[in-house]
Simulated scan of single mutants.
Amino acid sequence: MLNPKYLKTFTTLAETGSFTKTAEQLFMTQPGVSQHVKKLEQSCECELLVRLGKGIELTEQGRQVYHYAREDETRQQQFLEQLKFDEPHQGRCTLACSGAVALRIYPGLTALQAKHPELAIHLEVAPRHRIVESLKQGVIDIGIVTNTPADDSLSADYLAEEVLHLFLPATITDFTTINTTLNQLGLVDHPDAAHYLQLYCNHSGEDSLASLEVAKLKRSGYVNQLSQILLPVSAGVGFTVLPASVEKHAGHGSNIAVYPAASTVSEPLYLVRSRHRNLPARFAGVSEVIKAAFNSAKSINGKPQWI
């Protein structure tokens, strides 16, 4: 049987990549960390990591041991939660969503945690596919995604429609040849850019955009930090498509323009969780905060729209 203490040391080392940081986090000495790793390797009968100067790299066996340890830790956490009295304002809540949604819900979640300090809210920004996989594996408790997952093990509650905007430099004032303009500017790419742009083109109500070949479009750059994606657009070096709500957090104001599409383009958002797991009472408050963030949205065509 693998020693839990050695596994904890090893997973911390794998995540920090540093013997020094691991020793500091676990209140150990560096030789103590090395000794734990050595004993774990002896138990596993294989090498788990390679030292690279001041850093490390896990071997294939090391990666397997790391994933095993993390899964075991999750199982133990869930088991301990089941043994505790179900307090409505105490315990750990893990959730994941897109960066744009995080901007919307995190202020309310922070206020909830400030009101109930025994709550520990862990919010991760992640792409849709990783959120779904994390839910199925039990790594997170709830997630917010676009489109209902095609998996019977998950349940989804509709939240709102997320409006998408095509953002252009403010210097662009002639929209009569929008396809030519977009090809000249180039797309400021980001993890969801191709998906958003294709969705926008398909549902904008304009034939010119519907014929745009997204895959062949020039890319003028790539940014994976949500708060920075509109910066190159404001500087006039490209265009992009993002949820409308991002604009007020970006702070570029008069330097960007929104293309006036014939039809409003949006996609649905769903609150998703495991169908067969009864969430602890504390998630009632968390869900209320999330839903409240969307209840203030405007209603278009009978559906609440977050803009």
Results as ranks from 00 to 15, higher is better:
Leu197Ser: 03
Leu7Tyr: 02
Asn3Lys: 13
Leu231Cys: 09
Val233Arg: 03
His129Leu: 14
Leu48Trp: 01
Val37Trp: 02
Val125Asp: 06
Asp72Asn: 01
Gln77Asn: 12
Glu213Asp: 15
Met28Thr: 00
Pro149Trp: 08
Lys54Asp: 12
Cys97Ala: 15
Pro88Asn: 08
Ser254His: 11
Ala210Trp: 08
His67Arg: 15
Ser227Glu: 12
Gln76Ala: 14
Pro280Ile: 07
Glu161Ile: 01
His276Glu: 12
Gly221Asn: 10
Gly62Thr: 12
Lys54Trp: 10
Tyr68Cys: 01
Leu187Ala: 04
Ala293Tyr: 10
Val258Gln: 04
Ser153Ala: 15
Tyr222Cys: 09
Ala23Asn: 04
Asp151Gln: 04
Glu87Val: 05
His116Tyr: 11
Leu119Ala: 00
Met28Pro: 06
Pro117His: 01
Glu267Ile: 03
Val50Ala: 05
Thr94His: 06
Gln228Glu: 10
Lys39Phe: 13
Val163Gly: 00
Tyr200Ser: 02
Leu164Ile: 09
Ser153Pro: 07
Ser266Trp: 02
Tyr196Val: 00
Lys298Phe: 07
His116Gly: 01
Pro268Met: 05
Val139Phe: 03
Thr74Ile: 15
Ala160Lys: 00
Tyr158Lys: 10
Tyr66Glu: 14
Arg63Ser: 12
Val50Gln: 14
Thr173Asn: 07
Glu288Gln: 14
Thr94Leu: 03
Arg63Ala: 06
Gln76Trp: 07
Leu135Val: 08
Ser296Arg: 08
His89Ile: 03
Phe19His: 08
Lys21Gly: 00
Ser34Lys: 13
Lys8Pro: 00
Ile142Leu: 15
Thr74Gln: 15
Asn278Gln: 15
Val188Gln: 02
Ala100Tyr: 09
Thr9Gln: 08
His276Asp: 14
Cys44Asn: 05
Glu57Lys: 15
Arg282Pro: 09
Val145Asn: 09
Gln305Asn: 02
Ala235Leu: 13
Ile105Ala: 05
Leu231Asp: 07
Leu217Asn: 06
Ile300Cys: 07
Pro280Ser: 05
Glu162Ile: 06
Arg273Asn: 15
Ile121Leu: 10
Gln184Cys: 04
His195Pro: 00
Cys46Tyr: 09
Asn183Trp: 07
Leu48Val: 08
Ala235Arg: 07
Val289Leu: 00
Leu49Gly: 03
